[in-house]
Simulated assay, not measured.
Amino acid sequence: MGKRKSKKAADGSESDEDMSMVDVEFEWFDPQPAIDFHGLKALLRQLLDADAQLFDLSALADLILSQPLLGSTVKVDGNETDPYAFLTVLSLETHKDKKVVQDLTAYLHRHAPLTLPTSPPAHLGLILTERLINMPHEIVPPMYTMLLEELAWALAEAEPYAFTHYLVLSKTYREVASELPSNGVEQPPAKKKKSGGAGKEGGGETFYFHPEDEVLQRHGVAWGGFDYETKVDEGASDSKRAFQELGVKPQGHMVLIEADKFQGAVEAVKSFLGGGQ
């Protein structure tokens, strides 16, 4: 195991009478092939959302775990538990003969905001990262910082990670009007969400599940969102309500960053979210 870093973070809730705080100690680990398969597969399913069924998630999890010295997981109760978050990078060129990478590459090309670089000398690194929805954002900067360090070590050992571009695959959401019947009762007007993690895209307001994506795209050569290919029931947005009046429609999101801009992008994420090393 190449890393084991700890940090305490406070989380809690406040009522009119009192406020309770819980100290949680987060630890960063290398991916563990013997331990992390099921937890990693669950996080991949969450990341890919409705389109997760298009891919062999078992094969994708195995591929991530086959490079345990690259990328990180975040855990709470020690190395033997499931990860609460992960971040890794995959070489689409090195693994181009694997079926799951072929499926992913075709999918990315269908939805990319511009033509993606493919053949040498271009070398695309796909960054995959996800975390449980209640994880503090401060866990993110150390994962990106450690990835930069690990890539430098890998290149020093002549490993095939000399990327020319990084593609961050992520997800966003939009608020949509509820499909639920009003039963003749007039609904209150929708409340505007106050958030620094929102932007305009396509004609509706886009919110970021991962607030660092808004920072990363400022350093990208291109970025954009896309609708998932897998159709969901009309009431699916109501089942994912974030607010009382509005439903939530998740969408895919990509940011393409040139390799020489990536370290600056990571530094900006550290400055924005805090918790950096």
Rank of each mutant, 00 (worst) to 15 (best):
G2F: 02
K3H: 10
R4W: 02
S6K: 09
K7P: 01
A10F: 10
G12K: 13
E14K: 15
M19E: 14
S20H: 14
V22F: 12
F26C: 02
F29P: 11
A34V: 03
D36N: 12
D36Q: 11
F37Y: 07
G39W: 14
L43P: 15
D51I: 04
F55I: 05
S58M: 03
L63I: 07
L69F: 06
G71N: 05
S72R: 13
T73W: 05
V74E: 11
K75C: 06
T81W: 10
D82R: 15
T88M: 13
T88I: 10
V89R: 10
E93P: 04
T94A: 07
T94K: 15
K96N: 04
K99Y: 00
L104A: 12
Y107R: 00
H109F: 03
P113D: 11
P113I: 12
L116Q: 01
T118N: 07
H123Y: 10
H123P: 02
L124Y: 09
L128K: 01
L128V: 00
T129Y: 13
E130W: 02
N134I: 07
P136C: 05
H137L: 08
E138V: 15
E138L: 14
V140T: 10
E150Q: 15
L151T: 00
A152R: 15
A152C: 08
E157K: 14
A158S: 13
Y161V: 12
H165L: 14
Y166K: 01
L167R: 10
L169Q: 04
K171E: 06
T172F: 05
P181H: 00
P181R: 01
N183R: 04
A190I: 04
K192Q: 07
K193E: 00
S195V: 05
A198T: 00
E201C: 05
G203L: 07
E205K: 15
T206E: 06
T206M: 05
T206A: 00
H210C: 03
E214P: 04
V221L: 12
D227K: 12
E229A: 14
E234A: 12
G235P: 03
S239Q: 12
R241P: 13
A242K: 06
Q244Y: 15
G247K: 11
K249D: 04
V255H: 06
D260G: 09
G264H: 08
V266N: 02
V269Q: 01
V269M: 15
K270D: 10
G274H: 02
G275A: 06
